[in-house]
Design a protein around this nucleic acid. Structure first.
Lengths: 228, 228
DNA sequence: ACAGAAAGTCAACACTTGTACACTGAATTA
DNA sequence: TAATTCAGTGTACAAGTGTTGACTTTCTGT
């Protein structure tokens, strides 16, 4: 067992520092930790997948020597888990913002889609990571993402209940429907991110298709009858 | 009999040899080409993504020397494209088989889901590859998969029209709905493949959720009114 | 003020990687 | 039969990889 690298075997999913490290040294550590995370995301910008990144690449991009990496993570997997957590935060922030901005009831779906599209574009790298590694990443990371997405879905179901948009549905039903919606969202995220720039025609078609699909889902949800 | 789908079934690909190489030498070449493709798929079995595979690993698994690789593909990207094509073939065969076996009309959705689940399990590796690289792979491969999935979706829409399940809908509408369904399918594929063995409870819940989601979609599709 | 903790650096290691080149030997063609 | 083609081999190399241990320097608690 190495003395250099603090191994936390009992907490393999530990990604964030347990306590807010404050003080001059602590904030410095935070800073390079963030630099590593951001470096990894940045490297994925041009179509690279997280799995294809090397530890050295990340440290190079972060402007740090390879061995410094181990002061923050055991390896790339742990970095990945930290990124998942960031992605989860981003997803939940989306819900918070959507909750605050009340789209008008007449065209709620289109309004939400537009908010969502904007949000995805503003958080390109996070969505790139989450959507990309959701199916492709290592089992560990996939599992973590699945958890975050489930969490997001359930929170969304709760919001839907709060809006009273689908009265009388059981929680399980709302979660099932939100699962469908979240699927659409993450799938659309990929399409949005792959969109070639300056192609308003294609962009518009994508948005419209997304809107139509959500309409179908909610049309179906309204028709849904709970089991007798 | 291999668990693997016989990939060599037909390869009308740009990356496949243009002329049917026949003769003793040609068929031998085909054989190691297939060995390379299958080796790549096999390596993805334990949660590795295609992007994370190295050329040498694939040749090692295939039982040939690294340099032999270049007799068949320029690089891993081209191998990937060949795999995408194999995946496309598998998807379309699913439609062919579904077309042939007429599930009873009373519970068409559940019947189809069961057929689908079985099919995914029988073609594990192909679905692993397609679902995994759909969002995570290199841009080239992602694009190729997108094309295959679109093709699959459109063919499905055509079948739906043939069944007359949603009379009066425009082709565009049917494609939009099938896009939704295909999304659900590929998402479910990931879940099916990640299913831990000997957990019939979890397995059943997954299937039921999938069924319910498709019901919602078709319920919505039936309610859908074409634009005025 | 001083001992110790700890973030980051440096140099080195044992591997793996993609690819180039010359080769062998069997299948094909002339 | 002789010449040619070509799938697959063997060797080699430069470059990149994860991880190691010993180090410097800078902050922190006593």
């Amino acid at each position: 067992m190495s003395l250099l690298v603090p191994i936390r075997e009992d907490f393999p999913s530990a990604s964030a520092p347990e306590r807010e490290e404050s003080g001059l040294r602590g904030s410095r550590k935070q800073r390079t930790r963030d630099a590593l995370l951001e470096a990894a995301l940045r490297l994925m910008r041009e179509g690279r997948s997280f799995t294809g990144l090397s530890l050295r690449e990340v440290t190079r991009e972060a402007g740090v020597v390879p061995t410094a990496f181990y002061r923050h993570f055991h390896g790339m997997d742990e970095l990945g888990l930290a990124l998942v957590e960031g992605g989860g935060v981003t997803l939940r922030r989306l819900l918070r913002e959507a909750r605050r901005s009340d789209v008008q009831f007449t065209d709620m779906i289109r309004g939400s889609v537009q908010i969502y599209k904007r949000y995805v574009e503003d958080n390109r790298l996070q969505f790139l990571f989450v959507a990309g590694e959701r199916a492709g990443g290592s089992p560990l990371i996939r599992e973590a993402i699945r958890r975050e997405v489930t969490h997001f879905t359930n929170e969304m179901a709760q919001d839907l209940r709060g809006l009273n948009a689908l009265p009388g549905r059981s929680t399980a039903t709302l979660q099932m429907i939100c699962g469908l919606v979240v699927n659409c969202m993450l799938n659309a995220a990929i399409d949005i991110l792959d969109l070639p720039p300056d192609q308003p025609e294609q962009e518009h078609e994508l948005v419209e298709n997304f809107v139509r699909q959500l309409r179908v889902v909610f049309l179906g949800a309204r028709q849904w009858k709970e089991k007798p």
